[in-house]
């Protein structure tokens, strides 16, 4: 997993609630057996017409937002299927941070395991950010993971966000849970020898 500590970037605004993982990456694109290449089908049915041409009214096809690495989305982002391909697709398309007022549980875990930061703000802060980007499509936010802050242009105080201390260390150092779990080998073996409910 790539390390993540800080990012200064423009934003892609997607003011839609309950964006499910079938929108992020439709099931018909899940037939690959590797992790790479899902980015081209990110939001496929919103992004492309049936003939494969980009739909001009979808935000990712708007020239003003090209190259922006922060996705700003409505509440309950990533609901639905457990497919980690959704996080891979966002990452592969260049996103490093998704901001929302809350995330579906499985998506949040998948994003953290992919090196994609799910950054949770309050509903009021989310509206503030949408208003900012509506006014200035090139507004740049600064995500600082070590201090857990989001600096917003024109805002005296940065926004603060919560993240589990262990997950924060993992992202900053590029560690994943396998390394940690393998280090628990002796405790796991002892546990297996003592469990009683397997009949």
């Amino acid at each position: 997993m790539e390390k993540f500590a800080t990012l200064r970037s423009g934003v892609v605004p997607l003011p839609i609630e309950n964006v499910d993982t079938d929108q992020i990456i439709p099931a018909r694109f899940l037939k690959a057996t590797t992790r790479e290449g899902f980015g081209r089908n990110l939001f496929a049915d919103w992004r492309y017409a049936a003939d494969g041409q980009p739909k001009p009214d979808f935000v990712m096809n708007d020239a003003r937002y090209q190259g922006h690495q922060i996705l700003l989305a409505g509440q309950n982002f990533g609901c639905g299927s457990s497919r980690e391909h959704a996080a891979w697709a966002l990452y592969d398309a260049g996103f490093r941070v998704v901001i929302s007022s809350y995330f579906a549980d499985i998506f949040r875990g998948n994003a953290l395991n992919t090196g994609l930061l799910p950054l949770q703000v309050t509903p009021a802060e989310l509206q503030e950010l949408f208003a900012l980007v509506a006014q200035d499509a090139q507004a740049e936010l600064t995500v600082d993971l070590p201090s857990q802050t989001l600096q917003v242009p024109g805002r005296p105080e940065p926004m603060h966000f919560e993240l589990d201390a262990y997950k924060k260390e993992c992202l900053i150092n590029g560690y994943d849970d396998i390394d940690f779990l393998l280090s628990q080998e002796s405790a796991i073996t002892t546990f297996e020898q003592q469990r009683t409910w397997i009949f």
Binding site: R83, I106, D176, D177, I178, L181
Partner: peptide
């Protein structure tokens, strides 16, 4: 349900690292 990274974790360790819902 779990993501694919967690599928690998369970394959390797038979465990997951989780916060309690």
């Amino acid at each position: 349900g779990i993501g694919t990274s967690q599928v690998a974790q369970v394959m390797a360790s038979q465990c997951l690292l989780l916060d309690k819902p």
